[in-house]
Nucleic acid binder design. Structure first.
Lengths: 217, 217
DNA sequence: TTGCCCATGTAATTTGTTACATGATTTA
DNA sequence: TAAATCATGTAACAAATTACATGGGCAA
């Protein structure tokens, strides 16, 4: 294989980086040099509210990949032999590639949602109504706690000019958590209505029939 | 660690199937026998709105695992030698295990959200404002289309007694998509406000709306 | 001096995807 | 009769987690 072919392949691979790699590079795109460890804490404290916080081992792996691609570079503090802090910074090439990725309208797929609570509601026919209700109620309580954390994170982000956009994202997250609460309350009400037997309007007997063989789909 | 501790850990791991396995078993928990192929189509048409639709190859793999655990069984239609339809059904053990999992309050972790659009907004300092706006506008358009699909799925689920809970989950999904639209419109407004220059502290910025009413239904 | 936080990394494993191979049945 | 759809599966690979190994610095 010629070196130009190799280069092309590397470019193609670089373009198709998983979103996680861009997220890590994104963390580096804000002012300052950071260690993998710091990146992980930052992701836990804010990225995770609207995206997700990778495992620390994955962050280290992504940092190595980004450095291999020339999108980031690193330097050690302390003597060479010792395994000590390694601080990463984004390169100009990295910033350019990231900017490119971030404004690519087509590439942004639909948001991925895996809602374990809803999965359980969906399976409601198997569960005791009271326990199902408890699953949703617990979710509400946890969401309230999360909401408090989002607000805290947003407060930290506010008034730092470089963090205007992160603050926007956190503002969205705050509203999103508020909406999640509203949705969960409505779900609880729907569940209660089912349990009490559907109210007057129309045909409502306490619908409990076996009702055979829906074909699926 | 003692060998008994190790044994306990292994047992715990065996009990803790990934949520995907439970989701597939859940698909089987509704009346009727189904092929892997049918399961995939069903997941595409409704599960994916609040959870996620696994790749067909993974569905086949999960079905084999579930059968190995005695949670499902299968039979072929057609002569033995030929590779033909294999229909799966849930077993009593499977139903019991699934019911157990579904009503376990503690086990239901927080919902997982990976929002590529928000990741891009978070990186707004790197992007051209107009293109960033386009990313969000595109997201709104796509969400509207998805909302229509959710409504369609919900209509299909309604009035089938065995699908009461799936219908509840889809009702939640519908509201969730509506909320997603509202949130995205608000985000667009925030973005515009940033671009126009922040307004004089008091409040009422111009913020041109999209003209569309977000909260249908 | 024990335990926690900082800090980096490897290894094993699991989870999940895409690409490919195969062939039957239905529909235009 | 060509195509799409139904249907199952394998193989290769990518993504991501958990468990483990290592060690410095600091505080109760």
């Amino acid at each position: 294989m010629t070196s130009s072919q190799i280069r092309k392949k590397q470019e193609a691979r670089a373009r198709e980086l998983p979103a996680t790699a861009w997220a890590v590079l994104g963390l580096l795109s804000f002012p300052g040099e950071r260690t993998g460890y710091e990146l992980k804490k930052w992701a836990d404290a804010s990225l995770r509210f609207f995206y997700w916080s990778p495992a620390i081992s994955q962050i280290y792996a992504e940092l190595r990949r980004l450095e291999g691609l020339g999108y980031a570079d690193s330097r050690r503090s302390g003597p060479e032999e010792v395994r000590t802090k390694r601080r990463y910074a984004i390169t100009d090439a990295g910033r350019a590639a990231l900017a490119d990725w971030a404004s690519d309208t087509a590439e942004a797929g639909p948001p991925v949602l895996k809602h374990g609570v809803l999965l359980r509601v969906w399976l409601g026919h198997l569960a005791d109504p009271a326990r199902l209700r408890a699953v949703v109620a617990d979710h509400i309580a946890r969401t309230r706690e999360e909401l408090a954390e989002v607000r805290e994170a947003r407060t930290r982000a506010a008034d730092t000019p470089a963090w205007t956009y992160p603050e926007l994202a956190l503002r969205w997250s705050e509203r999103h958590h508020e909406a999640e609460l509203t949705l969960a309350e409505a779900l609880l009400a729907d569940l209660d209505e089912l349990a009490d037997g559907p109210p007057p309007a129309g045909g409502g007997a306490p619908r409990q029939g076996t009702g055979d063989a829906p074909t699926g789909g």
